[in-house]
Design a protein around this nucleic acid. Structure first.
Lengths: 154, 154
DNA sequence: TATTGTTATACTCTATAACTATA
DNA sequence: TATAGTTATAGAGTATAACAATA
């Protein structure tokens, strides 16, 4: 699916005789770095047959029991219309249950299977994260993450 | 097209009573930050009827006259098969010309119109970049950009 | 035998529109 | 009147496969 993608994405520009006028742009570096980490995480989860978006949803429910799918959509910037088939699929696979909260809202809860897969996913994400920028200090890493949050948190 | 997208993406998590277990992840912060900057750049270029990928191609040609579309694809991680319709469209719109380099390769060059649009695009990209993290020093910004390059440059 | 350019095609992601039911 | 959930659908972006022409 994404096999071989991250290695292709990671070809260093030093391999070419060309200059890349985008190299000094924050937006460009964000896009390339994000694509490589996303591809790596996707490979990391492939044998579980879970997408990055699906595990993001499961982890939200695990951290916020009885959250609704609309709330998850607002947190993760996924439209209501696109949340519906994802939660339906995750329920069909036995990772979550739905309980009527009121007449129109449904509380989402993980099943035992959902909680088990979340533990496995957290382990894999930890190892995935540790593969990138292994040489910077925890303080530098935290500063980097906080700086990135400033870009998109209003 | 992407109207209103960046404002929706930038809704702060503080607006919700939920905790986001992804907040501390480098990959998550990269994805959100990248999406917001991409959406902003897309809006910035919308009235020129140019996509972010199209201007990336034009800027590569401007910086590397007579580059081939395969080389651009390698630099930007765009597959040959997807480069073909893009360069065809940019040529049809009068932004670039093709000259046979050898029997199978074509040198790409910007037309006068292509160079003019590149100047406008560079101005807009500069203002776009300046809208993000306006309070950090140039040195901090450069350090951030170099750190991001370490993530994806092999 | 490998590379360039091209076409066809499929899959994912994400967007809008429209609908029902409920607050 | 606004919101939750759903379905249908359309547009990007990106993947593979196959082909002809050339190195």
């Amino acid at each position: 699916m994404m096999a071989g993608m991250s290695s292709a994405l990671r070809l260093p520009s030093a391999d070419t005789p060309f200059t890349n006028p985008l190299d000094g742009l924050l937006g460009y570096q964000l896009r390339r770095a994000s694509a490589v980490m996303l591809a790596d995480l996707s490979e990391t989860l492939a044998d579980l047959d879970l997408t990055v978006t699906e595990v993001s949803i499961l982890l939200q429910i695990d951290a916020n029991p009885d959250i609704t799918q609309s709330d998850i959509g607002r947190i993760l910037a996924i439209k209501r219309a696109n949340m519906a088939p994802m939660t339906a699929a995750l329920q069909e696979r036995g990772f979550l249950d739905r309980v009527a909260a009121d007449g129109r809202s449904q509380s989402l809860r993980l099943t035992e299977r959902g909680r088990t897969i979340c533990n496995e996913v957290r382990d894999r994400i930890s190892r995935h994260e540790a593969r990138f920028l292994p040489d910077i200090s925890p303080a530098e890493r935290e500063a980097l993450i906080e700086m990135l949050a400033l870009i998109w948190v209003g």
